[in-house]
């Protein structure tokens, strides 16, 4: 299927989702759905680096928080529309992604992962000590009740924005997959020495991957202050973002754009249901159990059952 047609289908699917949400007409659905959509975007973004090039990034919370705190700064200084804030958040964390990539991509395997984890800790320390964005006390964001020009509640607007971001990230991820870039990413995952010997500029490709991956994570994090209305470093840099975002592609399958979506829908929905019916403390346990089950029963994820 051509990329343009695929994106059209994505838009149709996104619109149907929104229509379905309107029909259900329950505010909680948007709150829960937003989280699942956020994880679709995050998992897809993570997979561009982690699944396609094989570099496992643990610094996810840093990229989300960069996007979120960009919004906090913009909210305090300007009254820009959310979509612009998402773009700014994406650019900021994309640039940080490229920067971190440049410093750490000569490290392989576990060493790269540890470096990204360290980067998240450094970022959290910086934000915690930055009084302008609230420091350790956190920042309050007053969410408008409605969006005038669309005539919908603000939570519906956030839901819609996240749907749009999902279309963008999934569209980009799929376009990369069977492109020249995607083949280059795959050679990096398989064997970097052989990739270089075949003419693949591995460092440049890895920087593209870290930039795209970090940028999309930042965009996914940018609306967060409006969603939670109170943002503090401990929750913005929460480790559960990292655990979930890595677990979802692994459960769904890392080799295709569909894997992160399946993983995010399955895990995200389970967590939301568990939060309402049992306890929110259960969500990490669910991730743990699912990961163990999938590592043992389906090491290539859900899509591994259908594709070889």
């Amino acid at each position: 299927m051509k990329n343009s047609i695929f994106v059209l289908w994505l838009i149709v699917a996104a619109l149907l989702t929104f229509v379905a949400a309107r029909l259900i007409d329950n505010a909680y659905f948007y709150f829960a759905g937003y989280v699942v959509l956020q994880y679709i975007a995050l998992a897809t973004a993570w997979n561009i680096l982690g699944g396609y090039t094989g570099y496992v990034n643990f610094g996810i919370p840093a990229f989300i928080a960069l996007g979120a705190y960009s919004t906090v700064v913009l909210h305090k200084l300007t009254s820009l529309p959310l979509i612009v804030m998402m773009l700014v958040g994406g650019i900021v964390s994309g640039l940080v992604g490229v920067g971190t990539g440049y410093l750490t991509l000569r490290l392989r395997g576990t060493f790269f992962s540890i470096a990204t984890l360290a980067m998240a800790v450094v970022m959290q320390t910086l934000v915690t000590n930055w009084a302008f964005v609230g420091g350790s006390r956190g920042a309050y964001i007053i969410r408008p009740a409605t969006v005038q020009y669309l005539g919908i509640d603000y939570i519906q607007y956030l839901f819609l924005m996240m749907l749009g971001l999902c279309v963008l990230t999934v569209g980009v991820a799929r376009a990369i997959e069977k492109s020249r870039l995607g083949y280059g990413f795959a050679t990096i995952r398989d064997d970097e020495l052989a990739a270089e010997a075949s003419g693949v500029p591995t460092l440049r490709l890895k920087l593209i991957a870290t930039g795209l991956s970090g940028g999309f994570m930042g965009m996914a994090g940018a609306p967060l202050p409006y969603y939670v209305t109170y943002l503090d470093p401990a929750s913005a840099f929460s480790l559960s973002y990292a655990v979930n975002t890595i677990a979802m592609p692994l459960i769904g399958g890392t080799s295709s754009w569909l894997g992160p979506i399946l993983g995010a829908i399955l895990l995200g929905t389970l967590q939301q249901v568990a939060t309402v019916t049992i306890s929110s403390a259960l969500s990490l346990l669910i991730v743990g159990v699912m990961l163990v089950v999938f590592v043992v029963a389906a090491p290539k994820g859900i899509i591994g059952w259908f594709w070889k």
Partner: peptide, 21 residues
Amino acid sequence: RPFGTLTLAENLRIPILYAVQ
């Protein structure tokens, strides 16, 4: 040092895409 997750044809595609092109 073949590219393990790519088919044989795809393995050869890489130098064509990246070196020749």
